[in-house]
């Protein structure tokens, strides 16, 4: 198969970028999108030109590194997959394919298609610890958790933090990501002691990182490779409201360090 790529090229975060065209020839339909980019980069290297920089790691859809907006869709035209799990058979032979980075003020472009997503890490960090006793591993059934609750928590624990929700959101909001992280621990008994503090801290960090606000359009859940539902954002809203309300009536202890 043959394609024409329109790829975003940008040397660094300070220099403005632009779309440039490259031919991709003799591409096997069963190649992944990233493998196709590898082939193009091989050719560029042979021609002594700068290869296209893009993020990738596991290439099996679980690490959350790959981050391409393909033809205007975060993680490309297929549902519930990451960019690395897009195969060239999904495109028409001879098609022109536009490849752009995840665009958000919170994700500065480092080079070409690589963006800095450490803002998401800082949100996780601000979530802090959970109180688990040290010592021997607890007995398997010492802390019973209902099947349904365990599954719900697991559904959101699928979040790989790729940031596609931010990329697809009309407002570059990170609320699907934050709601997944807040819900994951908020549903489980182990997450209860710090639940209120956690949701308040994570929302406050999210705001400080210049992400946008949710306007309830659910573009995020449509592109999420892990199919995380935007209904979790409603749970985030609920949790934050209750935590803030409780916070207004509680005085912070002078001696509480770290948390």
């Amino acid at each position: 198969m043959n394609f024409t790529l329109r790829v975003w090229r940008q040397p660094n975060s300070r220099t403005p970028g632009r779309l440039e065209s490259y031919p991709a020839r003799n591409i096997d339909p069963n190649m992944s999108f990233l493998e196709m980019l590898d082939v193009v980069n091989e050719q560029l290297t042979l021609e002594n030109r700068e290869p296209i920089a893009f993020d990738h790691d596991c290439r099996e859809g679980i690490c959350g590194m790959c981050s391409l907006v393909i033809d205007g869709e975060a993680h490309g035209p297929e549902e519930r997959v990451t960019s690395c799990q897009i195969y060239m058979r999904s495109f028409k032979d001879g098609a022109t394919i536009t490849v752009e980075p995840f665009r958000s003020k919170a994700f500065p472009i480092l080079k070409d298609l690589i963006v800095d997503r450490s803002a998401l890490d800082r949100i996780i960090q601000s979530g802090g610890f959970i109180s688990v006793n040290t010592g021997q591993a607890p007995d398997a059934n010492a802390l019973p958790i209902g099947k349904d609750l365990a599954e719900q928590a697991f559904d959101v624990a699928h979040c790989i933090g790729c940031g596609a929700c931010v990329a697809a959101c009309k407002n570059a909001s990170a609320m699907l990501f934050v709601s997944a992280k807040v819900t994951h621990l908020g549903l489980l008994p182990q997450g209860q002691p710090e639940r209120d503090r956690r949701v308040r801290a994570m929302v406050s960090t999210m705001d400080a990182e210049h992400f946008g606000n949710c306007t309830n359009q659910y573009e995020c859940e449509a592109v999420c490779p892990k199919g995380i539902s935007a209904a979790n954002i409603a749970r985030l809203n609920r949790d934050y409201a209750l935590a803030s309300l409780k916070g207004m009536f509680t005085k912070k202890s002078e001696s509480a360090g770290g948390g």
Partner: peptide, 19 residues
């Protein structure tokens, strides 16, 4: 705020389900 959150727009953008 939301406009500032994405200072540079997508050159190609496909809306999934936002009405």
């Amino acid at each position: 705020d939301n406009r500032r959150a994405r200072p540079d727009h997508y050159r190609q953008e496909r809306t999934q389900q936002a009405g």
